[in-house]
């Protein structure tokens, strides 16, 4: 039976999470439709149509879909559901918000943050902050799934699927968008960056965080991440948090600076290809999973690292 993938986007362009979730959808069934819901988001529909493997794009446009409010997204998807064997969305804060609501309206379970598709009804997912992996089989007629996108390769582009405009139900009107404060940055996006430089409590202040982490991230063209302790202390905003309850990242290179390596932090970065830890405590748990460890004071090491990188660049 066909599968529906709900696209993640900001009404202007498709988020990198969607082509990755596409790979999970294709592993369930080759007949994948993509739902692009939003307001004035036709350009996103075009982008989705170009994802290799998409059989069709459903474009739902209405003012009340602009902010992907859970009440509206779930109400939109319910009447579509009967045609599909599974509905997937990336496990972003948007997907995590509306998908369980949709599942309950359809009277089915949700399978959260899958990391592998074993068959059309069997999936793997992490529990206990990634300290155990569970293989679960669903008995529901419709599988509602969120996808941990770091576990899947992005689908290619080059396709040209037909785009079909669909009817949008009247607004549920239960909730209203009240504004947002989005972090703008010239850096690559944390969730999909090739290199991530993360700072922890040890940075000590917002000023130090900017002074010591930013230049290194700049030099490596890296996204900046942080531990919960650094976010709680106000060094950076909440969207920098990596971990069990923040973002999950799996870059080529993850550099943890002044981060102890609590299981909740490891949950968000331990699948990175190469991990570097800089910490003055040689017993810090982060060293147990780091490929390269450097024991010492970060305030001394980071300027050295910066100048070594400059030397290496020639």
């Amino acid at each position: 039976m066909a599968v529906l993938l709900v696209a993640e986007h900001d009404n202007v362009s498709l988020n990198a999470a969607t082509p990755k979730a596409m790979s999970a959808a294709l592993a369930i069934d080759p007949d994948v439709h993509i739902l692009v819901a939003g307001n004035g988001c036709a350009s996103v529909g075009d982008e989705a149509a170009a994802i290799t493997g998409a059989a069709k794009v459903l474009l739902a446009e209405a003012p009340h879909l602009e902010h992907h409010l859970a009440e509206e997204m779930a109400a939109l998807a319910v009447p579509l559901a009967a045609q599909y064997g599974a509905i997937l969305a990336p496990a972003t804060t948007t997907g995590k918000n509306y998908m369980p609501r949709l599942a309950a309206l359809l009277d089915v379970a949700q399978i959260s943050e899958i990391t592998a598709v074993k068959s059309a009804d069997t999936f793997e997912r992490p529990i206990y902050a990634g300290n155990a992996m569970q293989t679960v089989q669903s008995s529901d007629a419709i599988k509602i799934i969120t996808v941990r996108t770091t576990a899947f390769q992005a689908a290619e582009t080059g396709g040209n699927a037909p785009i079909e405009k669909i009817n949008v139900p009247a607004p549920a009107g239960l909730s209203q968008f009240g504004g947002d404060e989005l972090t703008s940055s010239d850096r690559p996006e944390l969730a999909s960056a090739k290199v991530v430089v993360s700072g922890g409590r040890a940075l000590g202040s917002k000023e130090n965080f900017a002074k010591f982490i930013e230049p290194l991230a700049g030099r490596l063209n890296a996204a900046v991440g942080a531990s919960r302790a650094a976010v709680d202390a106000g060094y950076v905003s909440n969207d920098y948090q990596v971990g069990q309850t923040g973002k999950v990242v799996a870059p080529e290179l993850y550099i943890a600076i002044g981060i102890s390596g609590a299981i909740q932090h490891l949950a968000g970065m331990k699948d990175s290809k190469v991990i570097v830890a800089i910490n003055k405590d040689e017993e810090a748990p982060i060293f147990q999973i780091a490929n390269y460890g450097l024991v010492g004071d970060l305030f001394k090491i980071l300027p050295e690292l910066q100048s070594e990188l400059e030397k290496a660049d020639g």
Partner: peptide, 16 residues
């Protein structure tokens, strides 16, 4: 009035 922690930063929703 609920301020929500979202991937891009913060979002506010107003709920009945």
């Amino acid at each position: 009035r609920v301020t929500r922690e979202v991937d891009g930063g913060l979002q506010t929703v107003i709920l009945k």
